[in-house]
Computed example of a mutant assay.
Amino acid sequence: MPRATLLRQRLFLLFLVGILLLFSPLVLQFEQLGRWSGIPVLVLYLFATWALLIALAAWIVSRSRD
């Protein structure tokens, strides 16, 4: 399988995982948890998930260049 195809498949899978993590009923669970150190848990979850997705995308792309 060519490297470009494998890269596209991995990034597409990451996109689908991101959709599930950011736009699913799972998000509503964090809305009900309240606050942690004065910051809403929902905001912490969304930013942490977003940062994780960016880090994983960067790792996948950098790994494919080796």
Rank of each mutant, 00 (worst) to 15 (best):
R3M: 09
R3Y: 01
A4F: 05
A4P: 00
T5P: 00
L6G: 02
L6W: 11
L6S: 11
L7A: 01
L7D: 01
R8L: 14
R8F: 13
Q9W: 11
Q9R: 14
Q9H: 09
Q9E: 07
Q9I: 11
Q9F: 07
R10F: 04
R10W: 10
R10A: 07
L11R: 04
L11D: 04
L11S: 06
L13N: 10
L13W: 12
L13V: 13
L14S: 09
L14C: 09
L14W: 10
L14Y: 10
F15P: 01
F15S: 12
L16H: 03
V17F: 05
I19H: 01
L20E: 04
L20H: 04
L20S: 09
L21W: 06
L21Q: 09
L22F: 03
L22K: 14
L22G: 02
F23V: 10
F23I: 08
S24F: 06
S24I: 07
S24Y: 08
S24R: 09
S24G: 09
S24P: 08
P25M: 05
P25S: 11
P25G: 15
P25L: 09
P25K: 09
L26R: 05
L26N: 10
V27T: 15
V27R: 14
V27C: 02
V27E: 06
L28E: 14
L28M: 07
Q29D: 10
Q29F: 12
F30H: 13
E31C: 01
E31S: 14
E31M: 09
E31Y: 11
Q32K: 15
L33W: 13
L33R: 14
G34Q: 02
R35I: 00
R35H: 12
W36S: 12
W36G: 01
W36E: 06
W36L: 15
W36T: 11
S37Y: 12
G38Y: 04
G38P: 11
G38L: 03
I39V: 15
P40F: 03
V41P: 06
V41Q: 11
V41M: 11
V43N: 02
V43H: 10
V43Q: 11
V43E: 11
V43Y: 11
L44F: 04
L44C: 05
L44Y: 05
L44S: 08
Y45D: 03
Y45E: 01
Y45G: 07
Y45P: 02
F47Y: 12
F47N: 08
F47K: 08
A48F: 12
T49K: 03
T49S: 14
T49E: 06
W50P: 00
W50A: 13
W50Y: 10
W50F: 15
A51T: 07
A51Q: 03
A51N: 01
L52M: 15
L52D: 00
L53K: 01
L53R: 01
I54R: 06
I54S: 04
A55K: 05
L56Q: 12
L56G: 03
A57P: 05
A57M: 09
A58F: 14
W59R: 12
W59L: 11
W59N: 02
V61Q: 07
V61E: 04
V61C: 04
S62V: 03
S62N: 13
S64E: 15
S64L: 02
S64R: 09
S64C: 08
R65D: 08
R65T: 10
D66N: 07
D66H: 07
